Simulated assay, not measured.
Amino acid sequence: MSVRALVVDPSAPAAVRLDEVPDPVAGPSQVLVDVTHVSLNYGDLNDARSGRVPPGAVLGSDAVGVVTRAAADGTGPAVGARVVALTPGAFAERVAVDVDALAEVPASLDLARAVALPVAGVTALRSLRAAGLGPDSRVLVTGASGGVGRFAVQLAARAGAHVIASVGSAARGEGLAELGADEVLIGLDGLDRPVDVIIDSVGGSQLVTAWSLLAPGGSVQSVGWTSGEPAVFPPYATVGPAKSLTSFVIEGNAGADLATLTALAAEGALTVEIGRQDPWERFAEAAEALRGRRVPGKAVLEVSRGERQPSADHSRQAEVG
């Protein structure tokens, strides 16, 4: 048996094609999930082109769906449970997921919104935690109109911090004040007081400028690099009172943090903005829009069930786009 999936193909549009892969086999502490939606992250685009996910492998990390087979060891959710997961190879009709890498989705939370939480929400939550966020902190969030940025603004505001949201244009700053930003800036223009925490997803020259604004004892969490530009620090920029620039990646299973995020979203304490929603056959269009920074919030793809074709018939392969 096989399932359809979005797999890496360097020759295809956006380096991804829709193809069939073997049906997943669950381990003792894994459940099988029939996926209904996946969420596209900027990192997925880089994974498809950089070789980090090899050709032929299934792309993605964010998925939601319904459990169709419970874990053999008796742990985790029961058959029929609605779940959200952060797992490798998420962009498939069916995935095997470790029970501690998922959380049940409250009945009041739509699955298309829940799927936006894994990578972006966990990144925002953990990077703020790692930076030592406190109620009196001054927090700068760069790329604040994106998925990570919008969650970081809200979570920092909930913690009582003074939140400064940096965006690329006035249009991209719309709605951020309502999410909890005390200041919304174009780039870093007008920011002349030190900040204690920086959640940076832009990199490049803006990271260099942000570093110069970091207070002694402060922390920059580097969670992304959407500018694609080098960061060139002037001489002695890193010599002086102690402060830190820390690389960030999600490590370990995310089930507990996903439970926290879904609970907040279900009760309306965390707004999930879907800037684009497409069937997954339109992956290339969604990818182009995301890379071009034309998606406020998150890009969500609906997993459609297509008719199976004989495995020897290469017409089964569909270039996405």
Rank of each mutant, 00 (worst) to 15 (best):
G268L: 10
V139G: 01
L109F: 02
S166K: 01
G65H: 06
L270M: 03
A57D: 09
V167Y: 05
A78S: 12
T123L: 10
G80I: 14
A26D: 13
V320A: 02
V115Y: 03
L264T: 04
W225E: 10
S201I: 00
S201C: 05
A171K: 11
A107W: 06
A14E: 15
V84N: 03
V153D: 00
I250K: 10
G89T: 08
A287W: 05
N41M: 07
D196S: 05
T75A: 14
A170C: 08
V295T: 06
R94L: 10
T123P: 12
A63F: 12
R126G: 13
D136Y: 13
P55Q: 06
S311K: 04
D278I: 14
H37Q: 01
I198W: 02
W280H: 06
L140N: 14
R158V: 01
G134H: 10
A92S: 09
A72W: 10
D196L: 03
A124P: 00
G74S: 12
A120P: 05
V35S: 06
A242C: 07
I186Y: 07
S169D: 07
D73F: 11
A101P: 00
S205T: 04
L258D: 13
V99T: 14
S201R: 03
A254I: 09
Q154P: 08
R94F: 10
V83Y: 13
R138V: 12
G297F: 02
A318Y: 08
S222I: 02
S201Y: 00
R49E: 15
A177P: 03
G240S: 02
S304K: 15
P235C: 03
A48G: 03
D257Q: 14
P106G: 00
T87P: 15
A26M: 08
V141F: 02
S244C: 11
R129H: 14
G76L: 11
E178R: 05
G224L: 09
R172Y: 06
R308C: 00
D44W: 08
F91W: 03
R49C: 14
L290S: 05
P55H: 08
G160C: 00
R126I: 11
A114G: 06
A165D: 02
G89I: 12
L290M: 06
A5V: 15
S205W: 01
E281R: 12
F283W: 01
L176E: 12
D34Y: 11
S244V: 09
G204V: 08
L6Y: 15
P24I: 06
Q154L: 04
N253D: 15
E319T: 04
Q30W: 13
A14P: 15
V53M: 08
R82F: 07
P106D: 00
I274T: 14
D9S: 13
N41K: 11
E93C: 14
A263V: 09
V84P: 04
V141M: 02
G217E: 07
R113W: 03
E183D: 08
Y42P: 06
G321F: 12
R138I: 05
R17I: 11
T142P: 11
V16I: 15
L245R: 10
D47K: 04
L59P: 00
A26Q: 13
L290C: 05
G143I: 02
V153A: 01
T262Q: 12
P216V: 04
S169I: 03
V153W: 02
G160E: 00
A130E: 14
E104P: 00
L301Y: 02
V239C: 07
D200E: 09
V3W: 07
S205Y: 00
A170E: 15
A159L: 01
